[in-house]
Design a protein around this nucleic acid. Structure first.
Lengths: 157, 157
DNA sequence: GAAGATTGAGAACTCAATCTTC
DNA sequence: GAAGATTGAGTTCTCAATCTTC
């Protein structure tokens, strides 16, 4: 049998519970502050980083690792809130271009302090500084993609 | 400002993406094998561990860290599949007692090999053995609850 | 036929309200 | 009034099918 060791199982449960706890806590703080969820932040940040030319839904999909329909529905909601514009792509008749609106830029900047503060309190303050880098390196080995490029250093505001 | 360091942000993104990747991969394998999702396994294992006397929904809720309504709806589905029985509690008129059925025991045992194999391949095989314990210890510092007792060494089959 | 994107229908999740018993 | 548990209504997620353009 290829049963995992107790140590592996312990790691697995710690990993899942740490991740859940952090995400749930941050989401709760955002909601409490009347702000949109983390996914919106990630999407808005990517769209903003794309600059004035915007980007295509399939590009966003690749960056956020969402399914096609997930991206479509997420954009529906964000657009309905007025945080992005969708315009038909002049180059590709099948596609459209997503650009952030001033309101979108604004809300993204309002989310950041709550997000940043949470990361500082919930992660930075709880780990010895010299534990952070090895932990990050180990976690990267667990990703599906090869642990090469940064590839998703999301949050910075 | 209390902005988190880039290293903290990198840790946060690695943590979330590692956790997501593992969960999604395991769920996909279970589905592909025609088996129920991970949550069912966790619930069935806890119920089975409770022995022939079963347990109350609120106890399960505490062990799985689910909201009250989440436990209720999860049990609805598991019971509809015939994997647990719900009987009124003789001691407390408000409550009920959940017990695993033979079919429930059986399906739980069928899930385990797929689950175990995944943990071995996706975690154990990807990390140097001496990295596991420190990683686990660090992750425990990130939980909400005090990093004291084991408190949720779920999987073993 | 493949790629980009959307959509209908059904399942699951969430919130707040409810009900019963303690 | 608090604890255990469920439920209606609304939102989000998921799958498979669809549509249009490449």
């Amino acid at each position: 049998m290829t049963d995992p060791s107790p140590a592996t199982i312990a790691l697995w449960t710690s990993l899942v519970s740490a991740s859940r706890h952090l995400v749930e806590t941050i989401e709760a703080r955002l909601k409490h502050a009347g702000l949109p969820p983390l996914t919106w932040y990630d999407a808005l940040l990517e769209i903003e980083k794309a600059g004035p030319d915007g980007l295509r839904p399939f590009e966003l999909q690749g960056r956020l690792l969402l399914p096609q329909y997930g991206t479509s529905r997420l954009l529906d909601r964000i657009a309905a809130a007025g945080y992005v514009d969708r315009v038909p792509s002049p180059e590709d008749g099948r596609g459209q271009i997503i650009r952030i609106t001033p309101a979108g830029h604004d809300i993204r900047r309002k989310i950041w302090p709550v997000y940043a503060r949470s990361l500082a309190e919930l992660i930075e303050a709880r780990l010895p500084p010299d534990a952070v880098a090895p932990l990050t390196a180990a976690l990267r080995h667990l990703r599906g993609t090869a642990p090469s490029e940064p590839q998703g250093n999301d949050p910075p505001g």
